[in-house]
Design a protein around this nucleic acid. Structure first.
Lengths: 201, 201, 201, 201
DNA sequence: CATGAATGAGAATTCATTCAT
DNA sequence: CATGAATGAATTCTCATTCAT
């Protein structure tokens, strides 16, 4: 159905902006369909959420797979990480869901496994060229994505680009050493006041 | 009253294990008191949560302050970070709350400010001795705590000590370079299946 | 839907009998619907109450408007008052709501304004024929409705028709048997906006 | 106890300003005593409220009794009514309670009976001098107090003195300017006992 | 297939009342 | 006697999910 597409788009956007707590009603409204239609296509809210996450994960897997063909393994790994953090930064639900124990969904877990696999492949290439630490794994890299995003999250409104800084920091942590300075200026303080309306750009 | 203690303990544990979404009813039950008693001591759920966060934050501030007197600035910073991550690791609500823009509570924001201050002092000492990057700030360090925890969170049940690995990784990222290898063996995969009953040790 | 009608009827009856304090649950039960259904149709209890009041007010406005075409202005005014008191007599919530400063609802306030307007028109006709005191206003008449009802209220069960007595009494008070003028200037309108903080001096 | 006095004063003031809905906690606080103390002196909130109402009623009875000695029966009746309306105007709870079917309290009902008696005595004097309609009763007069207040209540903030206007209006209604007799026989007493199940016909 | 009305299980919060100290 | 901590029933309102049309 075309409604499925409509629904997925609307849900993706809504989850991204407002997090997993949004009501089905709001998503339905945004998709321009009735609430019942949501449940026709997805047996539960959980299922809908999983479908969205799945899409995002697979997109990232694809990105990673493509980067396996890149020349510079270090750069490839870095771009992969940048793409991952970017996804998290622009999607509130994504980061609320990924890596949470509540994630019971089989397909999502499988997608995460695939993500770890491609990350491992990318890491392996870099490892072989002695670009990253020998004991770094693909899973480490995947976890790193969440960690980096999490660091930058409180700054998201005040300094939407801050995550570049922390990506760099992390990259420095995993690489075998350089003198590069961090790319984003350090935040002055944690701006905890404003409730974040849009979550990211 | 003693019930306040009971309540604070139960709430801390419950929030820690199950996140900020737990109902007051559950906390009350766990504390062995009536629902009304919760509201007698804390005017709202928000207030209760804030009280707990405040306690944890101040504890960490104290730890940091004490470490300012330590001889080795690098070691001090590292121990501070370890203490911080440890706190986060054992408390799910803590990391849900810290650094979230929804954090409207004045006292909590102030405590976070104090935490950044002490982190900055510790960082400054390490910076002066050229132990950490010159552009690293206390706020970076505080954000790092959350990031590290977040990385280790999915592994918490399967490998409760994994955070040491990521603390090391991060430390490497912020220091001016060594050959230390990561302390925790790399995780095999992300164990997302079991809903976590205890969250941490 | 038909449930809206059911709900409105049940709510009207329940409010009428038991006052504004009745719980939504009770109304729902009486309408034979779930609690949620009430909120589906009326976003809040306030809104439901307002809807009912609005209906009654508009009915009375219509009655008054129709009576403007009556031949005898005195009789018309009297019948208007009788209709108004009758409404109040049979509805407990109506009299709890009308003219109370807590009445924040815009549409209800507007309806009361309309009621005062039609009362003023009726009064004016009577005034011109020297049937009522020259300084009597439509607002006085509206207030009178509540006053008369209030007088008869305690007798309602024992002597349901007692209000006729007090209507007569009041009518005598407003008709021109005397030349004394009223000591307080007539109120311009009903100031229903501000919740009364001090209640009198 | 002195606390009983303190409590009665505080409760009177609080009820007067805020109506019957105020919480016992607020009254206790205002009286500077513990909540338990309230229940030591009054077995329930109802009882406390009754005690206050009793005081006000008896005060009014006393005023009426004193006025029986006044020279001018018409003026005496009028002053009695003014005093009664005044009480209602300055006490929100008083008017919420008086004449409500919820008034189950024996002593309060007795006090209202006494009030009707003294009103009847005052009315009788005026009646004998042909100042008021021959079929006006003391109970009518008592009911009138509530009615007048009720009329002026919505204006209380904007025009605190408006009740004088309606007192005058009412007084005109009850005095002998006409020969029409009232259509409904006078009620014998105020039947406040039964909580009204149907409210009206 | 699509709809949106209906449902009812909670959630936070309030408050009269009880009772141990 | 006085206290105020504890209680839990009741209230308004939200939302995922079901189902008749």
């Amino acid at each position: 159905m075309r409604n499925r597409r409509l629904l997925l788009d609307a849900a993706a956007k809504t989850f991204a902006e407002r997090g997993v707590e949004v009501s089905i009603g709001e998503i339905a409204q945004r998709a321009g369909v009735g609430k019942g239609t949501v449940f026709r296509h997805f047996s539960s809210k959980e299922e809908l959420l999983a479908a969205i996450m799945l899409g995002m994960l697979d997109e990232l897997v694809d990105t990673g797979t493509a980067l396996l063909a890149a020349e510079d393994p270090g750069l490839a790994l870095r771009e992969f990480m940048a793409a991952g953090v970017q996804s998290l930064v622009t999607d509130r639900a994504f980061c609320e869901v990924i890596g949470r124990p509540s994630l019971q969904h089989r397909e999502v877990r499988d997608a995460i496994d695939r993500l770890c696999d491609v990350a491992e492949a990318l890491t392996d290439r870099a490892r072989r060229q002695n670009i990253v630490r020998p004991d770094l794994t693909g899973t480490d890299v995947v976890l790193l994505l969440g960690g980096i995003h999490h660091m930058a999250a409180p700054l998201l409104i005040a300094e939407p680009q801050a995550w570049h800084r922390y990506l760099e920091l992390a990259f420095d942590g995993i690489t075998t050493h350089t003198e590069r300075s961090l790319p984003h200026p350090p935040p002055r303080h944690l701006p905890l006041t404003t409730p974040d309306p849009d979550h990211g750009r």
